[in-house]
Design a protein around this nucleic acid. Structure first.
Length: 461
RNA sequence: GGCCUGGUGGCGGAGUGGUGACGCAGCGGACUGCAAAUCCGCGCACCCGAGUUCGAUUCUCGGCCAGGCCUCCA
């Protein structure tokens, strides 16, 4: 079963084969680090993390090179730095550290490369130079602009015919532009903002050029997969590709273009306990990161996703089901460490995570009801399948303990022991009293023939 | 106005030209000192209209609705 991916350029699913199976390359547009990332920013991170993991599984961990850039030159960063009276690096360092931390909580592996715009400045300037040399760009009034007329395929990715772009109501016509669709590669900085020297005067790069330069530097053209949110198709990816191709007279930029759907925020659906929390940075403090990851993958990556408190609740409960099955099967020894065929087939079909998750539940059922051989296989497949896309790697007890600290756990365990004894002696009044006490501590007791297990009922509250 | 997605049961969400995926919630039963979990079973969904077809939720056309993008903003 080959990996099939939907390619935005072709507008259809295509069988994926890397140019070089020993060197699979992927680039995804990363964050601008001027604030904490909101959960919408986390969607592409998680989606492409799944792809990263699948590629590593298929081609080997060392064969996959994944680059995600960090935009650390930006007006919003400048504004924040000025407001706080600190260098921009203070701002960008702070939010990049938080970003990496938050994304790790969502189970995202660190990309192989995480290039920064500020550290790619030489490459950016060199690339602009080549574009000017190739007559694909021109300097005017301290700006350098990309000459869209020089690139016949401009508009091909986004399917925006040139005429439309001129006819569009929101075209900004600046006097120094040769064509309304031309876009900036280099521009003067505003007073007080950071500047870099260039052959066209002091200034800073435009938004799109940094990605082109980073791809060239970190991976080299053409790359196998380029990812990002749908909102980036135009103009960002269109421009990025135009620059990259024209600078090097290259034929091909990205062999597969992949775009994840937007994450929308339901109007008033957020549950009370979660308020209107939309920052990933805040969410990971209140909800297990794995549940958030589940929520982000519960729909297909290309479909829009409505972000609601209910979605988060359901996601946590779905994981309860899976971890519950594993908890009840702690005495079972896995007989395999490979994902199930059905699971793999689903995930290789353009990352059909909803169907892959359904297979996880099917495996959980087998684990509950099968004979010894079935259970051993099901446990192994459940763990391996879940693990392939970043789930179910915690110990079940830890999942259900919901982050309780050692002191609390000790107190709960003591009560559990006491209650088990009371039940054994048929002192049900005492057993019920202890249950009530535990309930007051937000702990739910689950009896079984040999003793009892427990869980924190709602880690968020 | 242009381009592009999508409209599936109480909710989320796959999929398919012809026996209602899967999860959450709900209902009935088994199990259980109680409870939870688990197990067994239940609900008869596919925006509207026309067409193709023996048969369409699935294909075609039209309509309605929702969402996205249409340049310096990630």
């Amino acid at each position: 079963m080959p990996l099939t991916l939907y390619d935005t350029m072709a507008r259809e699913k295509r069988a994926f084969a890397p140019r070089d199976p020993k060197r699979v390359t992927m680039y995804v547009c990363g964050p601008t680090v001027y604030n904490y990332a909101h959960i919408g920013n986390a969607r592409p991170v998680v989606v492409f993390d799944v792809l990263f993991r699948v590629l590593r599984y298929l081609y080997g961990d060392d064969a996959v090179l994944y680059a995600a850039n960090v935009t650390d030159v930006d007006d919003k960063i400048n504004a924040k730095a000025q407001a706080e009276g600190v260098p921009i690096a203070t701002i960008t360092d702070r939010y990049l550290a938080a970003y990496n931390n938050d994304m790790a909580q969502l189970g995202a592996l660190r990309p192989t490369f995480q290039p920064k715009a500020t550290e790619t400045m030489d490459g950016i300037i060199a690339m602009i130079g080549r574009l000017v040399e190739n007559r694909a760009a021109y300097a005017a009034e301290g700006h350098v602009l990309f000459n869209t007329q020089a690139f016949a395929d401009y508009g091909r990715l986004s399917r925006h015919p040139m005429d439309d772009m001129i006819a569009g109501a929101r075209v900004d016509i600046a006097p120094y532009k040769q064509h309304p669709a031309d876009f900036v590669l280099w521009k003067p900085s505003k007073p007080g903002d950071p500047v870099w020297d260039s052959p066209w005067g002091q200034g800073r790069p435009g938004w799109h050029i940094e990605c082109s330069a980073m791809i060239e530097e970190a991976l080299g053209l053409p790359i196998d997969i380029h990812g990002g949110g749908v909102d980036l198709i135009f103009p960002h990816h269109e421009n990025e590709m135009a620059q990259g191709l024209c600078a090097d007279h290259a034929e091909e930029y990205a062999r597969f273009w992949m775009h994840n759907g937007f994450l929308n925020f339901g109007d008033e659906k957020m549950s009370k306990s979660l308020g209107n929390v939309v920052l990933a940075h805040d969410l990971v403090k209140q909800v297990p990161g794995e549940a958030l990851r589940w929520a982000l993958l519960v729909g297909h990556y290309r479909a829009p996703l409505e972000w609601t408190g209910d979605l988060i609740e359901q996601s946590r409960k779905s994981l309860d089901r899976l971890y519950g099955a594993l908890r009840r099967a702690q005495d079972v020894t896995s007989s395999t460490s490979e994902p199930s065929r059905k699971f793999l087939a689903a995930i290789e079909d353009d990352l059909n995570t909803p169907q892959a998750m359904a297979e996880l539940f099917a495996l959980a059922s087998e684990l509950e009801t099968g004979d010894a051989a079935v259970r051993a296989r099901a446990k192994g497949e459940l763990l391996a399948s879940g693990g392939l896309i970043g789930f179910l790697q915690a110990h079940p007890d830890v999942w259900f303990q919901g982050g309780a600290d050692e002191d609390l756990k000790a107190r709960i365990d003591a009560l559990i022991v006491e209650r088990v004894t009371a039940r054994r002696e048929k002192d049900f009044a005492r057993a019920d009293a202890i249950r009530a006490e535990l309930t007051a501590m937000n702990v739910e007791v689950m009896d079984n023939p040999t003793g009892a297990t427990w869980r924190i009922k709602d880690p968020a509250s």
